[in-house]
Each structure stands twice: as structure tokens, then as C-alpha cells.
Design a protein around this nucleic acid. Structure first.
Length: 768
DNA sequence: GGAGCCCCGGTTTTT
DNA sequence: CCGGGGCTCC
């Protein structure tokens, strides 16, 4: 097996150990995926049958890429039989296969988060409890937490800790919502994402024979990104592997950034508690980044208390220092980043696709976009609304779901009046209520409206019957037509396709394109399945598409464009140059992270992930003010900057403060005082005074001193409506203030002297 | 039942 | 600033 020579010693050891449980701690850029793929190839070459290998990942993309690499090593004909996929897709397959033991049908629908939220919302409404207190997102995250910890509604009711916690949080009825939510999902023959794991656990618990079957089937189990597993996932893996303990988990505790989604870092930290004989392998050589970047990242993560200590090192060149970029406004930040990108291209020959801009929140992308656009720098933004979350796409999918599973409540509610066919909210409300009282699905009510005493007038009844017949007709076709042919019929007959042709507005055009795109995707899906000799009906399509996100949209990933994404989305990727922007208190770390040391440490890991994306150059920028939620707020450099050993940082020469910023301080005195009166604590030096030259150390000291000071000045702009006095124009009223190219401008009405647009850095205005 | 206005609230998000 | 949801008016 000469391919093992392509590995370094620790990688090779990790690959060759197959006799028992092992934990591979893989530092950033240390060849984690390589170890996994080689290990699978190694097992296959040792004669293990591909169907006995279960490899679990967190994204479809990771699974697909790994499968491709393995196919290259051992051949496609072998690789295709591997059980490789996301937790959710693998276990949804098993749940469908074992449907008669689960209480769900094999055609069960999968509710995505928005389906879950909308169902929760309707339940909260039904229970007549306050919708503001019981916000769908909040309730969903609690339900999700419960499910991830295998706490059923009954167990929840018996758990005094949870009940108390809910009482203190003033949401004591969460448990009722959870209970009803579970019933409604069941009635709709639908599982949400968390159910796929919960129900798998329940299946294994209630049916030891089934568990045993899969234990025997999977003689080797591998788990990628183990630091991101939750309890439900941990237990599935544990149950499947506890007899033979031929399990290998790979991950990096330093890159655990999904605890808000239920991931439990303890799973990796305490792996040895579950598998006491486990061998631990550490991959510590980083092949991605320069020494400076690796060392800087190490010095940062060293500040976390909860971690598995490791010594990540790089043998690449030392490389440039991490450059700190300090600006006064977020607009200026955009300009500086754009300029630096141009410089990287000119002086170092980087191309756009070598460069990424990473931020903490999606909303930061806007200003950056504008700055790049102004300098004609091409970019591509990842994240935001995914393809499958777009309305028109979800509508079409909802038709498919309803045809496949008539009881799917969220699907029927979604499309019963799309395109508009005169079945409004009132009617849907009646239908839902009627279904509730008889404990049946909405579809059941439609089947026999008279028997269920549905109180609608004759016209509405006709429309409902028409809808029901249409869905039944599609369903009757679903055996003879493949997914593509059926969806084609749907979009034509329902008028969805015509709906998108109503006008030539950009929105309508885009919807049209999206539907076409979907049709194309379904077409490809069908062709692939047919080539592989598999069926390609609507159910086959749905079971794939429900667990698909467009993270793996590779359409123009290799084009000449700068990548812009959140740090979360950047995990696993690498770029020659990385800009981490908005490194400010309350933004990164997020203001939400201050509740606990744990969440603060997670933010630090997030920053660690960001830095370690860089191969050669890393830039960290922060701004002294930022436009957020409609307001300009002042901000201080992130505490995390001072966590990095200053010897790896190149701090900026502080520019002389522009006069407009200084005078702004004065003009805002009254606003300043009002606020500081309200909040007792404030420091008078909100803005760093001009400094000729600041070393990294000094700057970091300032960061240290300023962090923790609550912001009191909210609006740096001249207040609209204020009266000002100008040396030449006299007294005027402020109509509007804007910031263009980092310069604050004000539109001021000077009465008979007319309206003037003035740059505040030049106009000597006195606030009256 | 549907279009247009007002008010509120606003992290991250592999499935 | 922005989108979503609730409300009003046709």
C-alpha cells in the first residue's frame, strides 16, 4: 500500500490503527480529510466491504468530496457502495427502510426550519399564549435542544430542571407547545431535522433487533467534524459501535463553533470516557499557513481554558505579519479593504479568487459590497437566502411533498392558495381547526368535508374540491411519471410557470429563472438516477432534496471573484489572503456572547477559525464607528485582538484624525450628555486621540483599556432637524445627513440663502 | 381575499 | 436600514 507513503508519520499512524476506537485531533490545516479518505481507502484495500463502512459527515458537500477522492483511489465501482453521507441523510434512509417500526410511513415528509417555525407559530396562536413571549425561533430552539438531548415531551414534563428554567424565563408553556408540536408532526407524517436523529435513537431503543442488524452491518464507523456532534448523534454512534468499538472520530475542539445548534464540545473533549481504550492521535503539522499565522492563531486559542492542548506548527516560511487595519467608519473600512485587495493583486500577483473577506454577521456584507463595486472588484457573496429557501422553489417543492404525503400540513397550508385560487386565510383557519377537533389531517377533512362539518359556503367547497382533485390527479400520475415529468405537469397545470411570467420586473424574471433552474436540477437528478439504474420518482427526488442546501453550489466557485462570507460559512475553506473585518466589541465577540465564559470561548474559537483560513496573509480590521440597525454606533477594538501575541501583528500607523471627526465630538455634546445621564457609566474619551505612531503593543493596550466601556454615543451624525449656524449662510435647518466616501455630508436649508449640501469636514458649523 | 401602510426588531445556521 | 407581520381599506 504505497499510497500510505504520501502521509506524514502521525497521519499514517492514525490511518493504520484500525483495531479499536481512535480519536484523531486534527489541528487546522493538518490534513484531516486526507486522513479520513486514506483510512477508508486503507480499510477497503484490506478487504473490508464498502457496504460495511459507515462514514458520517456534517455536510453533503464534505461527503461528496470525500467520496470522489476515495473513488479516485479505489475506483468508483467500490466507492459507490460506501455508506457515506450526513448524519441526517444516512439515518433518514434507515428510518424510511424501517418505516413499519417507527410509526411513520416510508414517505414521511421532512420539515425544514421554516416549516417547524410556522407550525410552532400556529400552535402558539391556538394555545392563545403571547406570541411575543413565545417567539417561534425561541420555542423552536428549546424544542430542538430537548430533541437533541433525547428528551421527549413526556420526559420534559417530568424534568424539574427544564420546567424550572422555563418558569424563570417566563415561558412555562414551552412544554405544551412541544407536546402539541410532536403530535402535529406525527399527524402530518413529518419529521423535522432533529427528529431524524431522535427517531433513530427511539428506533434503536425500541427495536434491539434492528439495532443489532445495523451493528452487524457497519463493521467500521468513521465520523468527521466530531466536535460538532450533539448528544443524539453521539448516542447513535455509540450504540452502533459499542460492541466492536471499531470507530474513528476526527475533529478539532478548537474549531467547535456550532454549540448554538446543539453541538456539544464535551463529546470530543471526553471521548475517552466513552471509549476507555481509545487511541488518541494528534495531527499537529499545519500544511496550510505560514508560521506567523499558525503561531498567531495558537497564541489566541491558548487563552481558552477548555481545550485539548496541542502544538500546531508550520514548516512553511515565516511569512508576513498579520496586518491590523484601523478605520474611523465602516465605509472607510470597506475602502481600505478594497484598496488592499488591489494592492495584493498588483504587488503580489494574487488573483481575486485567492482572497476572502470574512465577517461575523451577514449584514456586514452590504458596505463591503459597495466598496468593492466602486472599485470594480468582482465578488461573490455566499450565504443569505439559499436557493431552496426561495419562495417559488419552496412552493414547487411543497406541491411535491403534498403529492407524496397528503398529510403534510405545512405543505398543504403553503400551496393551497398558491397560485391564488380563492382559498384564503379564513378558509385555511377553518380547515385547520376542523382537522384539530377531529384529530385528523387537513387532507382528511378535504376528503369528506360534509362528514367533518366543515363550515364553508358552496363556492369555497367547490374550490376546495377542485384543489383536492388536482392533487389526487398528480398523485395518480406519480407512479407512471418520473420526478421531472411530474413537476413539469405541476408547474404548467397549476399556473406557477405563468405566474412568473406576469411582468418583466427583475423580481419576476428572477423567480422565473429560479423555477427553470429547479426544473433543470430535477432533470439532471432523473438522468443520473436512470443511468445508475435507480428509480427517479417524486419520492426519490424529495428524499434527496429535503436534506439539500445549496452550500454545495459549485457553479462559479472558481471564477475570478473575491469571496465574501461569514466566518461560520468559511469553516473548512482556505484562501491565500483573508480579511477579517469588523473586529469590534459587541460584534466580534457578539454582544450575545457575554452571558457566559463558554460562549465567549466559542467566539474566540470562531476567530481562530477565521485566522486559520489564511495561507499567506491575514488582515484584521476594525472601525471606530459602524452603521448598525439604522444607527451609527461607536465601537472599540475587539478584546480578541489583544489575545494575539503582539509579535505577530503589524499595527497601523494611526492616521491623524480628520477634523470632521473631532468637531463631531463637540457638536454632539448635548446628545452625549443626555445619554450619559441615563447610563451612569461613561468615559469621556470615546475616540482615540491622534497619535503620531502607535506600536502594536500600544494599540493593544488601548484596546484593552477601551473594551468594556459601554457605548453611550449612538448617533455621530448631525441630528436631522437640528439648527446650525454657518459663517456665510447664516442659520439653517438640517434636512438630511449622509456619509459618502467616509465624509459626512449634510443637506441644510438656509431659508432665503437656499438649500446647501455641505461637507462637514470643511463647513464650520455651529450647532444651536 | 388581497394590496398597501405602519411598527417592530434585528447573531452565527453543516441538516 | 431592512424585512416580516399585523392592520386597514377596497
Amino acid at each position: 500500500m504505497e499510497f500510505l507513503n504520501e502521509l506524514n508519520e502521525s497521519q499514517r499512524k492514525a490511518v493504520e490503527y484500525v483495531d479499536g476506537a481512535s480519536l484523531v485531533i486534527a489541528g487546522a490545516g493538518s490534513g484531516k480529510t486526507r486522513v479520513l479518505t486514506y483510512k477508508i481507502a486503507y480499510l477497503l484495500k484490506k478487504g473490508i466491504h464498502p457496504t460495511s463502512i459507515l462514514a458520517l459527515t456534517f455536510t453533503n458537500k464534505a461527503a461528496r468530496e470525500m467520496k470522489e477522492r476515495i473513488a479516485q483511489m479505489v475506483g468508483e465501482r467500490t466507492a459507490r457502495y460506501l455508506w457515506m453521507g450526513t448524519f441526517h441523510s444516512v439515518f433518514s434512509r434507515i428510518l424510511r427502510a424501517e418505516a413499519e417500526k417507527t410509526g411513520y410511513s416510508k414517505n414521511f415528509s421532512i420539515y425544514d426550519s421554516s416549516d417547524s417555525n410556522s407550525l410552532i407559530k400556529s400552535i402558539v396562536k391556538d394555545l392563545k399564549i403571547d406570541e411575543k413571549t413565545y417567539k417561534a425561533g425561541l420555542v423552536h430552539s428549546r424544542i430542538s435542544f430537548a430533541k437533541n438531548n433525547l428528551i421527549t415531551p413526556d420526559a420534559y414534563r417530568g424534568n424539574t430542571d427544564l420546567l424550572k428554567a422555563d418558569m424563570y424565563s417566563k415561558v412555562p408553556r414551552i412544554v405544551d407547545v412541544y407536546d402539541i408540536y410532536t403530535q402535529r408532526c406525527k399527524l402530518a407524517d413529518a419529521m423535522d431535522f432533529d427528529d431524524l436523529l431522535l427517531q433513530t435513537n427511539i428506533l434503536f431503543r425500541n427495536h434491539p433487533d434492528v439495532l443489532q442488524k445495523y451493528r452487524n452491518a457497519f463493521s467500521y464507523i468513521l465520523v468527521d467534524e466530531y466536535q460538532d456532534t450533539n448528544f443524539a448523534q453521539y448516542l447513535i454512534v455509540r450504540k452502533l459501535s459499542e460492541q466492536h468499538e471499531r470507530i474513528c472520530v476526527v475533529g478539532d475542539d478548537a474549531q467547535s463553533i456550532y454549540s448554538f445548534r446543539g453541538a456539544n464540545i464535551d463529546n470530543i473533549l471526553k471521548f475517552k470516557n466513552s471509549y476507555s481504550n481509545a487511541q488518541v492521535f494528534k495531527l499537529e503539522q499545519n500544511y496550510r499557513s505560514t508560521q506567523t499565522i499558525v503561531n498567531a492563531a495558537n497564541s489566541l486559542i491558548d487563552k481558552n481554558s477548555e481545550q485539548i492542548r496541542k502544538n500546531v506548527f508550520s514548516e512553511k516560511e515565516k511569512g508576513n505579519l498579520i496586518k491590523l487595519l484601523s478605520t474611523f467608519t465602516d465605509l472607510e473600512e470597506g475602502v481600505v479593504v478594497a484598496d488592499s485587495i488591489n494592492q495584493l493583486r498588483r504587488k503580489q500577483g494574487y488573483s481575486y479568487q485567492n482572497i476572502a473577506i470574512l465577517y461575523r454577521t451577514n449584514s456586514q456584507s452590504r458596505v463591503l459590497e459597495e466598496a468593492l463595486r466602486k472599485k470594480a472588484i468582482p465578488y461573490r457573496i455566499y450565504g443569505g437566502l439559499s436557493f431552496y429557501q426561495r419562495k417559488e422553489i419552496k412552493d414547487v417543492i411543497a406541491y411535491c411533498r403534498l403529492i407524496n404525503n397528503h398529510n403534510d400540513e405545512e405543505a398543504i397550508k403553503r400551496i393551497i392558495n398558491v397560485p391564488a385560487r380563492g382559498i384564503g386565510d379564513t378558509t385555511v383557519g377553518k380547515l385547520t381547526e376542523c382537522a384539530q377537533t377531529h384529530a385528523v389531517s387537513i387532507w382528511d377533512v378535504l376528503q369528506d368535508m360534509l362528514a367533518y362539518n366543515l363550515a364553508v359556503n358552496a363556492g369555497t367547497a367547490t374550490k376546495l374540491a377542485g384543489f383536492r382533485k388536482m392533487i389526487s390527479f398528480f398523485a395518480s400520475q406519480s407512479d407512471s411519471l418520473n420526478a421531472y415529468e411530474l413537476v413539469m405537469q405541476i408547474v404548467k397545470m397549476t399556473g406557477i410557470i405563468n405566474d412568473t411570467y406576469v411582468d418583466k420586473s427583475p423580481e419576476a424574471m428572477s423567480r422565473q429563472e429560479n423555477v427553470q433552474e429547479l426544473l433543470k436540477a430535477i432533470h439532471e437528478f432523473c438522468e443520473q438516477r436512470v443511468t445508475a439504474g435507480e428509480s427517479a420518482n417524486i419520492g426519490d427526488f424529495l428524499s434527496e432534496v429535503s436534506l439539500l442546501t445549496d452550500q454545495d453550489n459549485t457553479d462559479d466557485a472558481n471564477t475570478e471573484k473575491v469571496t465574501m462570507m461569514t466566518v461560520h460559512a468559511a469553516k473548512g475553506l482556505e484562501f491565500k489572503a483573508v480579511f477579517i473585518v469588523g473586529m469590534e466589541e459587541d460584534l466580534f465577540p457578539s454582544a450575545y456572547a457575554f452571558e457566559s465564559e463558554r460562549s465567549l470561548e466559542e467566539e474566540r474559537r470562531l476567530f481562530y477559525v477565521a485566522i486559520t483560513r489564511a495561507e499567506e496573509q491575514c488582515f484584521i480590521s476594525f472601525s471606530k464607528s459602524r452603521f448598525r440597525n439604522g444607527k451609527t454606533t461607536n465601537s472599540n477594538p475587539s478584546r480578541f485582538i489583544k489575545d494575539i501575541d503582539p509579535q505577530y501583528l503589524d499595527a497601523p500607523e494611526e492616521k491623524v484624525q480628520p477634523s470632521w471627526l473631532q468637531r463631531q465630538d463637540e457638536s454632539f455634546d448635548f446628545e452625549f450628555e443626555r445619554k450619559s445621564f441615563q447610563h451612569q457609566s461613561f468615559s469621556s474619551s470615546k475616540v482615540t486621540k491622534p497619535v503620531e505612531r502607535q506600536t502594536a503593543q500600544k494599540l493593544i493596550k488601548i484596546a484593552a483599556r477601551e473594551q468594556g466601556t459601554k457605548q453611550v454615543v449612538e448617533n455621530k451624525n448631525l441630528p436631522v432637524g437640528a439648527f446650525v449656524k454657518h459663517a456665510v449662510f447664516g442659520i439653517g435647518k438640517v434636512l438630511e445627513t449622509t456619509i459618502a466616501d467616509g465624509n459626512e455630508k449634510a443637506e441644510i436649508d438656509f431659508g432665503e440663502k437656499g438649500k446647501k449640501s455641505l461637507l462637514l469636514k470643511f463647513a464650520k458649523l455651529e450647532l444651536l
